[in-house]
Design a protein around this nucleic acid. Structure first.
Length: 844
RNA sequence: GCCGAAGUGGCGGAAUUGGCAGACGCACACGACUCAAAAUCGUGCGCCCUCCGGGCAUGUGGGUUCAACUCCCACCUUCGGCACCA
């Protein structure tokens, strides 16, 4: 009983000292966050005297819930922003909201809440969560893509593209997601499934709006070379996606319809003499005419309509067998006059090339499989050296290099030269030409959804497609949302919205009722940040030219092709329109890895979710930030470890204790002014740490090793206090070390650093200090320990003067006692001396 | 199939220009402090052996070199992207 009371008294006493003695992140962090907010502490303005630096993290969809992935990106971006500010850059570090999208509509259905209100509420909540992380955003630049003053300019940009011929409407076979009730761009279909909801994507023939991104294919591809600081894998993905192929377009005349022709694209014009079939896509416009009146007509048309019902994904699936049907018609080979049968094949895609493929079974595996199945002749026209191919007996196509055979005047040419020669010949005959084809298709941007930016177009019976005049923008979404069945009604449902007078002739007309793909809104937001209040243009020219391009962009790899390709396209269009001087949006890209726990992605169903909120509450934001940056380099996947978090928290407490203890010690004036080995070692640790932390952040973006360097410095400070008695400690050296520790940790743990800075009675904010410089002189040692190897194996160590020559070094090595023993009776063949590192003695 | 990235202790990860493999942290063990525990501070910690010494170790097998996690060749595994693209 007595013991228990004693215990309580003890706790009370401890609690009384709590504020000053114990590290209390909850209190410190909130206090500084309020202070920073009050002062607009992280605002940025154009200043031509300073070098600008644009740090940007991909803005989030305001789901209302901040997860660890978010915390990781923001932590990475914030360290860079804070570091660069201390390095003297004029840093812009904005944040905003990619606020259009389906979840807002779902919320409307489930909770009967207006998407606009739901979105604004979520933004409020998420912003609070972000601020609790201590991120240094200039909130005056915040943008919300679903706000009329933002989407007004998305619409304006659409019209600009329309006027430049880059936006057009066409009927096409498009991707349709039944579950999302809307069409999708090609980039938004992953392995045949909707990127957002993973339902199977079907094809439908619909009239839709497209942006002519293919017009920019060549530049989007070539300029990847300019992006030296982009991860290779992202560039490769974009490269593959654009899918450039060089070859020839070749014109075949129809035998049965003189004057009619079929155009085909091939990458192998050198194999033209080996053509034994012409295969058309089922959707090819000539199919109907070809079979009209033939005995194959019914069978072919049935096949075509059957193919139309199957999705492209199914048709092109791995296992799908090649199916072909003869049309009864023929084309004439332009180089040798041979008659070649025309077939319809399920494996030929209307959307790629011309929708017609010349079949060369001897030299193309697909054509080979097709030919064997339908007994088409296999004609060898490329002969590899040292091997004789026989079309009747070969088991697979030969696709390698060789000499041309059976090719008339082109015989004996190496096939590579043949490609050019054949193409040139065709061009001369007016039967073909050199051609580049891309896999990339135009960007389908209409969405049959309510919660998006309305496409600013009016349809008039008299005038046709009429763009909404600029002064009438924005075309605002109707505010009162109606539900029809299980869905938010599309815009077609609101008569007040659709009914409009034609801006050209004034007669009754109606509005386009589709909204734009949300990727449009995120394709230019980084420019809007430069002047978010701009009223008469998407952004001010001066501001965009000062701040753009983004110097460092940070975000998830999942946008490698989607957002990052679209944003590059928009940037180039804006550049061409003279609106901005940047022709690439992001100079440097960091694709951060995912956050895992127990070997799996964090998910509710697995029950392995850790939220930023709970970490901030339990340990504080500084600990969370530190762990997330320490656990792995930013581009690698990260394994969440509760014990690792504890370790980082321990480290921050270790710094805190050092500050508190030293503060007390400084106050009492204990200590001396000796400068000997201990002080020298401490000082060297300080400069070594500054060097490593600076280079790790600046050059390598390896925050994990930067943090470990700070840990080493803190360990060195503890060691110093351990070796020397308090009276003997050199206060000014200790204080200097402590200050440097605080400055170095400031980008990582901004609150702890700020509080410590003030506890040491330093002036101003730690975040407005200049980043410490290291003195290379302080890193030079008088004596160094050198490893002595014999035949490459470590056999001893010697301490030698740092400045000694290779010869001296070799002498020192040989003269050491142990090495001498080992060398006895051996013949020295060679001695390699590397100053500062090692000596290797090669003996026999 | 093509393209890309990566394989290092019990774990996360270091090794920046070919020069002591395993920094830093976690976990673990021991010691100090404590009546005790926590916290803290300190020490140890790749594997193996005949343990004041030595051998083996960076996915596997070769090679270059005085010296290889690092460079070259071949292969294995994992992850990611593209894939009847003519």
């Amino acid at each position: 009983m007595t013991g228990r009371i004693f215990y309580f008294l003890f706790m009370l006493q401890d609690g009384g000292l709590n504020n000053l003695v114990n590290y209390n992140p909850a209190e410190i962090e909130e206090r500084w966050q309020l202070q920073w907010e009050k002062e607009d502490f992280y605002r940025s303005e154009i200043d031509h005297q300073q070098t600008k630096y644009y740090v940007l993290e991909m803005f989030p969809y305001p789901s209302g819930k901040l997860h660890m992935g978010h915390m990781r990106v923001y932590s990475i971006g914030d360290v860079l922003a804070r570091f660069l500010r201390m390095r003297g850059y004029n840093v812009i570090h904005p944040m905003g909201w990619d606020a259009f999208g389906l979840p807002a509509e779902n919320a409307a259905i489930e909770h009967r809440v207006n998407p606009a209100i739901w979105t604004v509420e979520n933004i409020k909540h998420m912003k609070k969560q972000q601020n609790r992380l201590g991120v240094s955003y200039d909130w005056r630049r915040e943008v919300n893509t679903s706000a009329p003053d933002y989407y007004r300019w998305s619409q304006w940009l659409f019209l600009m593209m329309y006027k430049r011929g880059l936006a057009y409407k066409k009927k096409a076979s498009v991707n349709w997601c039944e579950s999302c009730n809307t069409v999708l761009a090609n980039e938004q279909v992953e392995k045949g499934l909707c990127w957002r909801c993973s339902s199977v994507v079907e094809t439908r023939d619909l009239e839709q709006w497209f942006l002519r991104i293919t017009e920019y294919a060549e530049r989007l591809l070539n300029d990847l070379n300019k992006l030296e600081d982009w991860p290779e894998r992202v560039k490769v993905m974009q490269h593959n996606w654009i899918g450039r192929s060089e070859g020839a377009e070749i014109v075949f005349q129809l035998k049965e319809f003189p004057g009619e022709e079929i155009r085909t694209f091939t990458t192998r014009p050198d194999t033209l003499f080996g053509v034994t079939s012409m295969v058309l896509a089922p959707e090819h416009p000539l199919v109907k005419k070809l079979v009209e009146g033939t005995e194959q007509e019914k069978e072919v048309l049935d096949f075509v309509s059957q193919m139309r019902r199957v999705s492209e994904i199914e048709r092109t699936a791995d296992e799908a067998p090649k199916i072909g049907l003869f049309t009864g018609r023929h084309v004439i080979n332009p180089v040798n006059g041979e008659e070649v049968p025309i077939l319809i094949g399920n494996y030929v895609l209307m959307a790629y090339g011309t929708g017609a493929v010349m079949g060369v079974p001897a030299h193309d595996q697909r054509d080979f499989d097709f030919a064997r199945k339908y007994n088409l002749p296999v004609k060898v026209v490329i002969q590899p050296a040292g091997e004789v191919l026989n079309g009747d007996t070969m088991n697979e196509a030969y696709t390698g290099a060789g000499e041309m055979v059976n090719s008339g005047e082109f015989n004996d040419l190496p096939n590579h030269a043949g490609m050019e020669k054949v193409t040139a010949y065709l061009e001369q005959q007016g039967q073909g030409r050199f051609q580049v084809t891309y896999r990339l298709r135009d960007w389908l941007i209409s969405r049959q959804r309510y919660w998006g930016a309305p496409i600013p177009i009016i349809y008039c019976d008299g005038c046709g497609i009429v763009p909404v005049p600029e002064e009438d923008l924005p075309v605002e979404l109707p505010l009162e949302v109606e539900l029809s069945g299980n869905r938010v009604s599309g815009l077609a449902h609101y008569e007040s919205f659709t009914r409009v007078k034609c801006p050209t002739c004034g007669r009754e007309a109606h509005r386009e009722t589709d909204t734009m793909d949300t990727f449009i809104c995120s394709s230019w937001y980084f420019m809007r940040y430069t002047s978010p209040q701009c009223q008469d243009a998407p952004f001010e020219k001066e501001a965009v030219d000062y701040w753009m391009p983004v110097d460092q962009y940070i975000g998830g790899i999942e946008h490698a092709v989607l957002h990052l390709l679209y944003a590059r396209f928009f940037t180039k269009v804006l550049y061409d329109a003279g609106l901005s001087k940047a022709d690439e949006p992001f100079s440097r890209l960091l694709a951060q890895g995912m956050v895992y726990k127990d070997g799996a992605k964090m998910s509710k169903s697995k029950g392995n979710v850790v939220t930023p909120d709970e970490i901030v509450e339990k340990y504080g934001a500084d600990t969370g930030r530190l762990f997330i940056l320490f656990a792995a380099p930013p581009e690698k996947d990260l394994d969440w470890s509760d014990q690792g978090v504890e370790g980082c928290h321990r480290f921050l407490r270790r710094i805190w204790r050092l500050v508190i203890d030293c503060r007390e010690q400084f106050a009492t004036g204990q200590g001396g002014s000796i400068y000997s080995t201990n002080e020298e070692t401490l000082e060297r640790s300080v400069h070594a740490a500054i060097k490593k932390v600076t280079l790790d952040i600046q050059e390598r973006y390896n925050f994990n090793t930067a943090i470990s360097a700070i840990m080493e410095l803190v360990n060195a400070a503890y060691a110093y206090r351990q070796v020397a008695a308090k009276e003997e400690q050199n206060q000014s050296h200790l204080k200097d070390a402590l200050q440097k520790i605080i400055l170095l940790i400031a980008p990582f743990a901004p609150h702890l650093a700020e509080e410590s800075w003030h506890l040491l009675e330093q002036k101003g904010s730690v975040h407005r200090q200049t980043w410490p410089e290291f003195d290379p002189q302080k890193l030079i040692l008088d004596e160094v320990e050198i490893v002595v190897q014999i035949n490459g194996k470590v056999r001893g160590r010697v301490t030698v003067p740092a400045e000694c020559t290779e010869e001296e070094l070799a002498q020192f090595a040989k003269s050491s006692e142990r090495v001498g023993e080992l060398l006895a009776g051996k013949m020295i063949i060679k001695v390699i001396a590397v100053p500062g590192r090692l000596v290797n003695i090669v003996v026999r």
